[in-house]
Nucleic acid binder design. Structure first.
Length: 424
RNA sequence: GGAGAGUUGACCGAGUGGCUAAGGAGCUCGCCUGGAAAGCGAGUAAGGUGUUAAAGCCCCGUGGGUUCGAGUCCCAUGCUCUCCGCCA
């Protein structure tokens, strides 16, 4: 959520920043209108309440002195009626205002390139060189099916399209990748491991920005009004919802493995084969709560921690900075890491590392108390995949496949796998 | 699913209709001490909104209601704990 004061003080600036996303102004004009209305009525009602508070103090005193309070009480009854008429107006307008604010995305950082779509993303660096195959290489779904380690047909039978069953060394590979990533981030990058609930309540979903705007993309559990998490970002960022942290606690680094659940509404027909786009997939996520003044340095180190996974797996990738047209709703700046996927003959997103600045913190009410006393301030929140496990698995199956149909295991995973190769 | 208890300040905790929501822990300073702890004394203290600053307004889990006035009474509800049931 954007800062109301900031919108008040720099309306044109904020409006232009939001418009750089190329999706209109999200009705931001309404913010000013509603805010002004609300403040006007609020001033009136506060004045009336002041009188009410003053006068009601007199009643017990008058009674003690044996004076008649009937007139005063009649007068106050009338005042009370007036207040009861205006008060709901204030909260009603306040609620409307909040809804408008919740549906306005974050303002992109000034350095984010303006663009319409992912075609306008800016390449930052390329690491590694895509392998030249001297045989007819296969897509990972064929590699997996031929080795009997991925079973899409049976997954469809028990669940439907966009699900996968991992089997044997396939299941073990997924588990090995997960453990490798968690160990790397906890042992070498200073992250604390979290294993959160995979369902969350509405407040958490609002806190990180999935609701109210994207409810249709989420799996909902009506019995308890829970949502299956679309990413660990939701439970982990919201761990500190409604808290005031001490400044010396910052920065907070968390990493979490969770499955992620997405309806993938609107992506019908895209990436229908293989592990790339599933209703349920595994991901290791990294989340940071940082001081505002160095959150962009924290974004760079977050990105490097995610890249380190692919470096050690020795798989080629590139880093792009998302343009305003491709930027997520809550994000001020995002880097995507894209892994080389031979069957797609291009780089495919495997991680998204973002700085949300105070946008989520304001929604989730996550603050810290600056050392030099002062009022609590909102933290900056960041997160990034470190990495999407299913896509990493796909990338390994494709990039490490051999002419005989077997798949070599990257060196760093061999201790986890107990073998250096998956064969028939 | 059933029954009961609880929910108050960065922590603990008193408070069933009206004076400024007790007290304690904490923190700061002082006394005491070789130094510290304990003890004693004094001071300080949450958050939101608003303002140049203030005043004012709001805040006792949440949402309604009763009342001139609600932490306190009524209704609904979230969460935590205990017991019963079910269950890995």
């Amino acid at each position: 959520m954007l800062d109301l004061k900031r919108i008040r003080e720099d309306f044109e600036g904020v409006k232009q920043a939001v418009e750089r996303r190329g999706q209109g102004d999200f009705g931001i004009d309404q913010v000013l209108v509603l805010d002004e209305q609300r403040r006007k009525i609020l001033a009136q009602v506060e004045q009336m309440k002041n009188k009410q508070n003053q006068d009601s103090k007199m009643i017990p005193q008058m009674k003690k002195e044996g004076k008649n309070t009937d007139d005063l009480m009649a007068e106050m009854k009338a005042l009370s009626e007036e207040i009861k008429k205006l008060d709901p107006r204030v909260s009603q307008i306040g609620e409307e205002l909040k809804q408008v604010l919740l549906n306005i995305p974050n303002t992109p950082h000034a350095s984010v390139p303006v663009g319409k779509s992912d075609a306008d993303n800016m390449e930052i660096r390329k690491v590694g060189t895509p392998r030249e195959f001297d045989f007819e290489y296969k897509a990972h779904w064929d590699v997996g099916a031929d080795l009997d380690i991925l079973d899409f047909e049976r997954a469809a039978k028990i669940a439907g399209a966009r699900f996968t069953v991992y089997k044997g060394l396939g299941a073990r590979l997924e588990r090995s990748i997960t453990n490798f990533m968690l160990n790397l981030h906890t042992e070498e990058h200073g992250y604390t491991e979290i294993l959160p609930p995979f369902m969350v309540n509405r407040d958490a979903m609002i806190g990180t920005g999935q609701l109210p705007k994207f409810e249709d993309d989420m799996f909902h559990v009506p019995a308890k009004d829970f949502f299956l998490i679309p990413t660990a970002e939701v439970p982990v960022t919201n761990l500190h919802m409604n808290e005031i942290l001490e400044e010396k606690q910052l920065p907070v680094y968390y990493t979490a493995y969770t499955p992620c659940f997405r309806k993938e509404a609107g992506s019908a027909g895209r990436d229908t084969r293989g592990l790339i786009r599933q209703h349920q997939f595994n991901k290791v996520e990294m989340v940071k709560l940082a001081r505002p003044e160095n959150s962009y340095e924290e974004l760079e180190s977050l990105l490097l921690a995610a890249e380190e996974v692919l470096k050690r797996l020795e798989i080629p990738y590139r880093v792009v900075k998302l343009s305003t047209g491709d930027l997520g709703f809550s994000s001020a700046m995002t880097y995507d890491i894209e892994v080389w996927m031979p069957s797609y003959n291009r780089y495919v997103e495997i991680s998204s590392c973002s700085n949300f600045e105070s946008y989520q913190a304001r929604r989730a009410n996550i603050r810290f108390r600056p050392e030099e006393k002062g009022k609590p301030e909102y933290v900056h929140t960041l997160n990034g995949s470190g990495l999407a496990v299913g896509r990493t698995c796909a990338a390994i199956l494709e990039n490490y496949q051999q002419a005989d149909g077997s798949v070599q295991i990257p060196k760093v995973l061999q201790p986890y796998m107990g073998t250096d190769c998956i064969r028939k």
